[in-house]
Computed example of a mutant assay.
Amino acid sequence: MLGMEQGQSGAMVVAEVRKETQQWVLARARWEAEPQMTFSDVALLLGISKQAVAKHAQQFDWRRRLDMPTIAARAHEKADRAIEQDADRSQPQAPQVVAPSPVFAKLSRHEIPADATLEQARKISQDAAIDERVELLTRHRREWGAVRNLAYAAIKSKDLMEARTAKTVAEAIKTLQDGERKAWGLDSGEEGPVKVTVVRGGA
Rank of each mutant, 00 (worst) to 15 (best):
L26C: 10
K78Q: 13
T165Y: 07
L118P: 03
P100K: 03
D80F: 04
L44W: 06
L160E: 14
Q22C: 12
R74K: 12
Q6G: 00
L26G: 10
G10D: 00
Q23E: 15
Q36A: 14
E190W: 03
R181L: 09
R65C: 07
A154Q: 08
R65I: 06
R65D: 13
S49H: 13
A72F: 00
G3Y: 00
Q6P: 00
A116R: 14
E143V: 04
A82V: 10
E135D: 15
V147H: 02
E32G: 04
G179H: 04
A57S: 14
A146K: 04
K55E: 13
M37I: 04
R141L: 12
V196Y: 04
A153I: 01
E111L: 13
I124N: 12
D127I: 00
N149H: 10
V98Y: 09
D127V: 03
R28Q: 09
F104N: 14
V53C: 08
K123H: 14
V199Q: 10
K174M: 07
K158Q: 14
Q36W: 02
A82M: 08
Q177K: 06
A43D: 11
P113D: 14
P193G: 03
G47A: 11
L186I: 01
I112F: 09
K19V: 11
E5G: 03
E34D: 14
I83Q: 12
A203T: 02
K174D: 15
A128R: 03
V13K: 06
P69V: 04
A129G: 09
D187R: 02
S101M: 15
N149F: 02
D41T: 07
G47I: 09
Q96K: 14
P92V: 03
